[in-house]
């Protein structure tokens, strides 16, 4: 418990550092959002309105320290300002929608890919030297080494454009309004299928190979050999003795992948015009939408920290040896 609290303290400090960097970075870049917005309105904005806008974005003439404190206060209340690109929506609202879609596709993809890849890794290692073990990893690594956007575009072109099996973009059909109806849910699922499937196919090989290699080294260990000598059923030897131990390094990788979900699904969302976090980020950059950018960067950082914290806790549960250090 003390261990978890200590970790928690560490993550709070890291989060504070991220929030602070997040404040300074955009202010070091050229241009300012109010001017950008002014340009958008093609000069039809009065100087008073302009001044009011600056105020809304927190870009006052106040000293930096005061700006920073105001910013911190806002962040703590979950107020990240007004979006320029999606004016006049609040950044928190814009991010929340994007976040939902990103978690749906990228989250599903990472979990599915990890589960399938790890299972295949266990199978490949326990049938070492079989055709499965010889062919499967190489094929999946081959597929995974294509540039992802290219792979995704080819799949979209064939299955979406030519064969028309799947929609070309968006999270659900334009003629539907979000509801819990069967029609809406199935629309969401068909729209999510290609983005999820391409990410799974591209990342499967990595999970498979790392689990397979962990398994191969664990299978050579004394405790697995002893489990065999005990006359236990092969399934128990493989799962409870070998895979249970081989899983540990993969869990670390899984945690990192979870953390990168928000930042990493950029390409997927661009190729499939999916309205997630990555897509929003591109919009934000295009429109010099600082508040939105800041909000997204902050979410990405927090996601990485959050995923790390989760993995720390999961690790305590998975590996009893780490509990000692915690005491």
């Amino acid at each position: 418990m003390r261990y978890i609290l200590r970790r928690l303290g560490f993550y709070l400090v890291a989060a504070w550092a991220a929030v602070t960097l997040n404040f300074f970075l955009p202010r070091l870049m050229p241009g300012d959002p109010a001017t950008a917005l002014f340009a958008r309105f093609r000069g039809q904005l009065s100087p008073e309105a302009m001044e009011a806008l600056r105020e809304t974005f927190g870009l006052t003439e106040a000293p930096l320290v005061k700006q920073y404190l105001t910013y911190l206060g806002h962040i703590l209340r979950g107020d990240m300002g007004i979006s320029v690109a999606y004016f006049p929506s609040e950044v928190s609202g814009v991010i929340a929608t994007g976040l939902l879609w990103t978690i749906l596709i990228a989250g599903t993809a990472v979990v599915v890919s990890f589960a399938i890849g790890t299972t295949l890794g266990i199978i490949a290692a326990s049938r070492r030297g079989s055709w499965l073990d010889n062919v499967m990893p190489s094929v999946l690594i081959f597929v995974g080494s294509f540039p992802y956007f290219w792979l995704a575009m080819v799949v979209l072109f064939i299955m979406g454009f030519t064969l028309r099996w799947f929609p070309l973009g968006h999270a659900y059909s334009d003629n539907l309004t979000p509801s819990l109806s069967l029609e809406f849910i199935s629309s969401v699922l068909t729209h999510a299928f290609l983005p999820v499937a391409t990410v799974v196919v591209a990342t499967l090989g990595g999970w498979l190979l790392s689990m397979r290699n962990n398994m191969v080294s664990v299978l050579g260990s004394d405790y697995v050999n002893l489990a065999k000598a005990k006359g236990l059923k092969p399934a128990r030897v493989i799962m409870r003795y070998a895979a249970r131990n081989a899983l540990l390094p993969s869990v670390t990788g899984f945690g990192m992948a979870l953390g990168y979900i928000l930042g990493g699904s950029l390409l997927t969302e661009i190729v499939f015009s999916y309205p997630g976090q990555g897509y929003l980020l591109v919009q934000a950059v295009r429109n010099q939408d600082y508040p939105l950018m800041q909000g997204i960067f902050l979410m990405i950082t927090l996601a990485v920290l959050g995923a790390n914290l989760i993995i720390d806790v999961v690790y305590l549960w998975l590996d009893p040896r780490t509990r000692e250090i915690g005491r």
Partner: peptide, 23 residues
């Protein structure tokens, strides 16, 4: 499998590594 451990069992050289560390 029947013979293993019921009839013949073994003690390994390295007790350090002969036990599964996570169970």
């Amino acid at each position: 499998r029947n013979l293993r451990w019921q009839k013949i069992s073994i003690v390994f050289q390295s007790a350090m590594n002969a036990l599964n560390p996570v169970i």
